[in-house]
Amino acid sequence: MDNARLLNKSNSTAAQFIRYVFVGGGATVVQWGILVLLKEAFGINANLANAVGFVGGLVFNYIISSIWVFDTSSVKNKAAEFSAFALIGVVGLLINQGLIWLFDKALTGKDLFGGIIPQNKYYLVGQVIATGLAFFWNFFARKYLLYNKTEEKQ
């Protein structure tokens, strides 16, 4: 794959996936930054802090994805496009929230990691697992449900 296909918009799924890794990484930094800041500095519940972080990451992801990752939306109205983009993201958030809750609440009190990870940081383990699962869901759902133009013939 040449650099031009990676840098310029393309309907190539491989090029879009690679660009989405960078965009998703940036959105993850935004989401995690807000999550950890709110949880650690302000003592806010991990699920609430994660939801606020999700909104920040979602906005970042939408702006950069619509500029750089996906070529053409199947939805022409920008408000409807953002709503569909967000709805797909909400499914990822539900995956994320469920795993954060599991590790922050349901598994607290259990010594899962032999003391290597303090129990009050288990929510971060859930966040790591959820980030991977949500990443794949978000990319493929957005690619095939929202930005579903067929690939260009090369």
Results as ranks from 00 to 15, higher is better:
83 S>W: 13
69 V>A: 06
99 L>R: 11
64 I>V: 15
114 G>K: 06
106 A>P: 00
130 A>L: 03
111 D>Y: 06
133 L>W: 01
62 Y>N: 05
137 W>C: 02
131 T>M: 03
143 K>W: 08
75 V>F: 06
119 Q>Y: 10
137 W>V: 03
143 K>Q: 07
92 G>K: 12
84 A>G: 07
68 W>V: 06
118 P>T: 03
71 D>N: 14
147 Y>C: 03
77 N>Q: 14
101 W>Q: 00
143 K>A: 04
87 L>Q: 10
130 A>E: 01
101 W>R: 02
64 I>W: 08
91 V>D: 09
147 Y>H: 02
58 L>F: 01
86 A>V: 14
71 D>Q: 15
93 L>D: 13
51 A>T: 15
125 V>K: 03
127 Q>S: 05
57 G>P: 05
93 L>Y: 15
90 V>P: 08
86 A>C: 13
105 K>F: 13
147 Y>D: 14
59 V>I: 11
103 F>R: 05
134 A>Q: 02
135 F>W: 12
104 D>R: 06
108 T>Q: 10
140 F>G: 04
134 A>D: 00
119 Q>I: 00
102 L>G: 03
113 F>V: 00
140 F>K: 14
79 A>G: 08
66 S>D: 14
128 V>S: 04
59 V>Q: 01
111 D>T: 06
135 F>C: 05
138 N>I: 05
112 L>T: 13
113 F>W: 03
77 N>D: 13
104 D>N: 15
141 A>R: 08
76 K>C: 01
147 Y>L: 06
124 L>W: 01
106 A>N: 05
51 A>P: 09
57 G>E: 05
138 N>M: 11
100 I>M: 10
139 F>E: 07
61 N>L: 00
96 N>Y: 05
145 L>R: 07
61 N>D: 10
92 G>M: 14
74 S>D: 13
121 K>A: 09
76 K>E: 04
